[in-house]
Every structure is written in structure tokens, then in C-alpha cells.
Design a protein around this nucleic acid. Structure first.
Lengths: 408, 408
DNA sequence: CATAATTTGTTAAAACCCCTAACAAAATAG
DNA sequence: CTATTTTGTTAGGGGTTTTAACAAATTATG
């Protein structure tokens, strides 16, 4: 039950029905492929005639392709299978982080092409874009034989204004009010560029992922625990961006307003309890607020090292992790009580020690969850190997081609 | 950019375009009335022919009526004005509270008919429904001359399952797992009954209200401070309900996990700092957790009394209010950081002393808001005289008739 | 005051789309 | 080989937007 916006609506025209059904057909081919026209007609609960017309249009546009005829055991004419034409376009997914920038080439379906490449992130925005241009073109030539691509999805760990393409604030990159879209558009002429905060993009990628095709969730939360804490929320099948595209900053909701100081200036933010630096500080007995600005090139003791020590019976390490686990759970309870999601996804280095902390996390959640149901929200760990942020960057692109048309 | 749900979508049929444009026309008549067909054609950026056809249908259904011809100063044929036919149906809005139950008769536009009546709330669900039936029919006979109504919108201060119509937990009513929909359906045969949590309904009513017709907000938060703290969130023009319809419980997000005990059992919930009992306890120096179960019929010292004392230079009262103001702002900051709304609405008895606390609230918000924009979110006070919960109950009904059709 | 100009609202026909029904194509069962 | 079944296409009916033309109604103007 959405309200129609009386100053920004979309009238239905002669082509609207076609547009809607076209996207539904695309969605169903994407989630059910390989699939025949007759199958689609059954899935869509319409007639084959309608499907034929829809598919002819999609074939002509090159969005869909026909495959080999299937052999089935029942009698009757063999169906011709349909697939999303993944050769239709080439996209580049880019994950910008403080240490390195990662990139990956994908086809129109968002399937990875070739391996992931990475390079050190340059902190000067202009230099960064120039370097990115070189690396992207090199990767494209390597993997698809042409330096051209149709779409770029880029995620950064920070807040940004999607209308202007400005990075408002990315603490770890030390970017503030940086116009990123303009130089990118100049560097990559003729390609559509989609920017998003990495936490939001990760949340997007989870509702757009096609694994476990039966399961369809429209209300989920993605929590990324790393140097900071990023959160993305999807409600009613749509990413929650808020008025300034800064929604989802649960990382700065306090556990205790008198708690340790956070990098944002306030006290007792969730992030100040559970970020990797917070956990490490707890282990070393340091004051979190007093920590030096991180030097990127110096190999430091990492959270992975801490987890390793905890596994080899370093009781101090395990205690530090358990503290983090408890605070993680208490903060998750706030998210759960306020958002009531169907599922929570957790990413970040911390998840490699999930078996050590799961019980603590769950106990803390139940301690504050308002109802039994809320206390039992399923939590799925997203391992680093799945490259969730790159998947998020991909989702920025795929969402465009498969999303529901704007109507009413 | 909403994802199409591949297991629950709505195909466009022959009538879909009409359905969409019909609702758009209704919405525009509602927000711009009185309005002519020619005006509508301009607003909708379509031709007058299309509007004529749409309106003819709406006239026949009785949803729209023609008014007098307007005299305008330009030359040309006089336009005939169109209006929403508010006599089309009768609705009853019901606000159930621990002390009393309020009800109001409205027309199809949601306009109040007659005055608001109230009666003591019976705590036994069956008795409550029986009493409600008597009162509603009496009010209907009084105000519209017939005991029949088309829709009932009912809000309660608690969590409920909208699918089954069960009240999961309404602390102040002492209802737990009460089947409310079934006895209501029996009592009011042939009328559509819409139940909702009062905080959510209040949020709904704010996006559906037509005052200040230019202003259209799609991301708002309603915070109700009373015996407890209720919050409703609207994102992307749609109410956020979550998986179990329990989303929005920001009242139980902690300010300090070691803070005072809350009625929910956890410690340091926002509600435990800013609810009316919390403020009163602070004034009397009582421990909040130790307070006796409230006896309803005993006239107690209320928050209004406290505000009155603060106005007459009772410094202790003012201090208590200022503390509440600060905690209110700190909690609002959490909501602002996580939701990034265009506007926040605050209702409840506390708002009668808003002039005394506004500065403190704003300062506390800015203290924790992540960006300058977020610190400056507009806040609008909803005075009790507007009867926000009854307005919310009305919105449950009006939203149905004017909402965008489900498509794709 | 007659006529031109302008605006509103309606009607007829064209274009587009879904939907039913019939049919051709292609495969299996008997 | 024939009947049966399934797939995919084509033709026509009905609903909807859209264009174009027109009647109705009012004001401006010479």
C-alpha cells in the first residue's frame, strides 16, 4: 500500500502493460533459466500467445537468447529454452577500500568474468580516477578483449550524495565533499556509472542474488564489521536510502551514551564497541580513542591474528572476542527491534571467527529482543571469499535492468 | 528501484493501465479539489479525452461527484468542478487506550462527522467488543442516521499480527495473544475492519494528510511519547512493518545498556528515559523500575501537571523536563542516523511543554547527528487537539481507497 | 451586437496491448 | 502409421490510451 505521490507520479500509457510484463518475464527467466515459453506462460499465469509476443521483443533487443532445444521424457514438441543474454553487455564492479581497490569484470547477468584484480588505492581523487581508468581498461582488454564497458558499479566506504555524485564523507579514505562522478564520467565516456555506499550495496546484492531461488526476502539487513561498521537496510523490496542517502548508520547508534569515544566524535557508538580497531584495542588494553591514525602500509596486528590466537587458546584473545560478540548482539537487537527483518547478513573479517562467537551473539540478541520471533531472526554469515562488496557493486548494475518499472 | 518478487508478482492485464490512471486521478482530485477535467488533463500531462473516460467511470462508481460550474475570468467555456464524493461511504475511527476508548465518524474523505465520543475501555476483550458495538452503533445513529458503516479503522497501543488479527502484546491493556479481529468481524458484519499499531497508524496519517498540499514527504518518522514510546516509520512512501509487523520499536533501543530497567525487561531503553512515567519518576526521585503498576481510575499527578509546575518556576520540574528533553534528543539522533527522514513528527502529552524543551532536544540531536543535514531535520509537533491516533485510524481506511495498485 | 477567439468537454477512429481460440509444428505412445 | 500431447504462432475480439476533430459555452473585440 504505497501512496501515490501527487507531484511525481507516472501515468500509465499504451506501453505500460508491456513494460511491466516485460520486466516480469525478464525476472522469471533470470530466476528460472533455462526456461521455455510454455513454462513462462504457466509461471506468469497467462497464455503462451502473450509470452511469444513478449519474448520476441526481448529477443530483438538482445536481452534474451534462445538456447538448444531440450529433450524431455514426455511426449509433445520439444521446448526451446530461453536464457538471459549475458553477452549483451559488460560491466565492471569496483570496490574502493582504504588499503586497496578491487575490481571485477562481469557479464550482463552479473557473472564474474576472469579473476579479481586489485591495486593500491590512491588517496588523491584525481590520481585515483586516472589510475582506475588504466586498471579498468587493462582488465577489460585482458578479460573481454575490448576496453569498452557498458556499466560501472562502484562502492565506497562512506556517505555519498547520489544526485550530485559527491562523496560527502569517507573517513578511511580521508575524502570529504569530493566530486567523484564528474571525473569518472570524463574518464569513462559513454558508460553508465552507478555509485553507492558499500553497506547499502551489500544489502542490495543480497536481495538480488539468485542462489536458493525459492527463498525471496524483501526485508533484510546487511551489517558489515570492519574498520567501521556499515549497515544497509532493504524494506518492502526496496533499499532504504533516506532523504540524504545517509540512512542505515546504525553503527553510530549508541550502546551507552557514556561509552568510549567513537571516530565520529560522539560517545558509545556501536562501532566504538565492535569495529576491528575496537576489538584490538580491547585486547591490547589500549584506550580506543587514543589510538593513532592508522598507517596503511605498516603491517599491523590484525583481527584475523586475534582470531587465530583465540583459536590457539589465548584466553585474553578469546575474552576480547567474546566481549565484541556480546556488544555485536546487543546492537543487532536494536536493529532487529526497529526494523524487524526476515534475515540479517553479517560480513567482515570478524566472521571468520563466527564459530567462536555465535552463541554469545545470539544470547545478547535474545536478551534485548522484544518478542520470541525477533530473538530468533536468522543470521547468515557472508564470508570474505564471496566478495560481498564487489557483489554489491554488481547489484547496482543488475538492479537497473531487472527492477520493476516506476508506475503510479 | 524495487525488485520484482519472482514468487509473488502481479501481471499487467488489459485493465491495469486504467486501474493505475484511475488511482492517479483520484489522488489528484483529492489533493487539488475542486478541479476540472481540463485541469486534471494538464496535471496528468495527458489529453482531455482520456480524463473524460476515466472520470465517467469514477462518476458511475460514485467515487467522484460533479459540483457547480465555476466562473473564471478568462474567456471560454466554464469548467465543471469535480470532487471526491465524500458521501460515498461512512467510516469509524477507533483509538483504544488504557484509560478510555475514543471514536469518531468520518466520511469517505476522512473528514470528521460530528464530535468525538469516548467511553472507559473494558479490559476483557469480549466485553470490550460488545461495548464497542453498542457505542459505535449509537454514534452512527446519532451522526449519520444509520447504524451501518462501510469501514472501521482501529488502532491499539501494542504489537499485532495483521494477518491473523491477533493482538500479540499490548502492555497497557494487559492483552497478550488476544484474537481481536474475529469478535470484531462478528460484531460488525459486512464492514471492512483494519487494525494497526497506533504508532504506525500515526505515521501513515502524516503522509496521507492533505494539509499543505504542495509538500509531499515519502520518508518520515512519527514518535509518540506517552505511557510508552511508539514509533512509526514510512520509507519510500510505504509504511515499514517488517516481517512480523513489529518494526519501529525504537522505544526499546538503548541509550545505555546499563541504564534503568524498562517495562520490557531490558535495561536502559529509550522508553525508560523519556516515557511519561520515567519523567515523573525523575521528578519525584523515585526509581522507575520500582513504580507500582498504574491504577487507572486513581487521579494521579500527570505529566501535564509537571509541565504546569515547570512553567510556574518549579526548578525541580524544569530540571526533570530538561533531562527528558536531552534523552529525547539523543534517542531521536539514533532514529535520524539510521532512517534519515525528511521530517519527524512528535506526539504525546509531553509536546504541550515543547517550548520549554525544544532547545535542549535540538542540541542533543546535533550532538550525535552524523552530518549537518541530519542535525537539522525538521521536527513538527502534533498537538493532542489534532487527535493523531484517531487520524491514524482514519488513514488506515483512506489509504485503501487511494493507494497505488499493486503492480509488477 | 455580431463575430472571432478561446477554453471545456465529448466523440470517433487509430494504435497498442492482453486474451481467447484455432492451428501448425514437433515429438511420443501405442 | 495414427492418435495424442505439448510447444509455439497467428488471427481476431475487447479494453485502453492517444490523436484529431467537433460541439458547447463563454469572453473579447470591432
Amino acid at each position: 500500500m504505497r501512496k501515490i505521490n501527487p507531484v511525481d507520479f507516472t501515468l500509465a500509457t499504451r506501453g505500460t502493460s508491456r513494460e511491466i510484463n516485460r520486466q516480469i518475464a525478464l525476472t522469471l527467466i533470470r530466476t528460472h533459466q533455462p526456461v521455455s515459453r510454455a513454462d513462462l506462460a504457466r509461471l506468469m499465469e497467462t497464455n503462451r500467445a502473450n509470452v511469444t509476443l513478449l519474448i520476441n521483443e526481448l529477443l530483438q533487443e538482445g536481452l534474451v537468447r534462445e538456447g538448444a532445444q531440450a529433450s524431455q521424457k514426455v511426449r509433445g514438441r520439444k521446448p526451446t529454452f530461453l536464457y538471459i543474454n549475458s553477452q549483451k553487455s559488460v560491466a565492471v564492479a569496483i570496490d574502493v577500500r582504504a588499503s586497496r581497490t578491487f575490481l571485477m569484470i562481469t557479464d550482463a547477468m552479473g557473472k564474474q568474468v576472469g579473476d579479481i584484480v586489485s591495486f593500491p588505492t590512491k588517496f588523491d581523487p584525481q590520481e585515483f580516477v586516472t589510475e582506475l581508468g588504466i586498471q579498468v581498461r587493462k582488465a577489460l582488454l585482458d578479460k573481454v578483449g575490448s576496453a569498452e564497458c557498458d556499466d560501472i558499479g562502484l562502492v565506497i566506504p562512506g556517505m555519498l550524495d547520489r544526485k550530485t555524485g559527491f562523496v560527502l564523507h569517507a573517513p578511511t579514505l580521508r575524502w570529504r565533499n569530493v566530486n567523484l562522478l564528474e571525473p569518472l564520467s570524463k574518464e569513462f565516456k559513454g558508460t553508465d556509472i552507478h555509485l553507492e555506499n558499500s553497506g547499502k550495496a551489500c544489502a542490495l546484492s543480497q536481495i538480488w542474488s539468485t542462489r536458493g531461488d525459492g527463498l525471496v526476502l524483501t526485508d533484510i539487513v546487511y551489517v558489515s564489521v570492519s574498520d567501521g561498521v556499515g549497515v544497509g537496510v532493504v524494506m518492502n523490496g526496496e533499499l532504504v536510502r533516506g532523504k540524504h542517502n545517509t540512512a542505515g548508520e546504525f553503527g553510530h547508534v549508541p550502546l551507552s551514551i557514556d561509552g568510549p569515544q567513537c571516530s565520529c566524535g560522539a560517545n558509545g557508538c556501536w562501532e566504538a564497541y565492535i569495529s576491528n580497531p575496537a576489538t584490538l584495542s580491547r585486547y591490547f588494553g589500549r584506550d580506543i580513542a587514543a589510538r593513532q591514525p592508522q598507517s596503511v602500509d605498516v603491517a599491523e596486528f590484525t583481527i584475523e591474528d586475534l582470531i587465530a590466537r583465540a583459536r590457539s587458546n589465548d584466553s585474553k584473545a578469546l575474552t576480547a572476542l567474546h566481549s565484541t560478540a556480546r556488544y555485536l548482539g546487543l546492537g543487532l537487537a536494536s536493529i532487529i527491534n526497529s526494523v524487524d527483518p526476515s534475515q540479517i547478513y553479517i560480513g567482515g573479517e570478524l566472521t571468520e571467527g563466527w564459530d567462536l562467537i555465535e552463541a554469545e551473539v545470539r544470547a545478547a540478541i535474545k536478551e534485548r529482543a522484544l518478542t520470541k520471533d525477533l530473538g530468533e531472526v536468522p543470521i547468515r554469515i557472508v564470508p570474505a571469499i564471496e566478495h560481498p562488496r564487489l557483489r554489491g557493486a554488481v547489484a547496482l548494475v543488475t538492479a537497473r535492468t531487472f527492477a520493476a518499472p516506476k508506475v503510479a
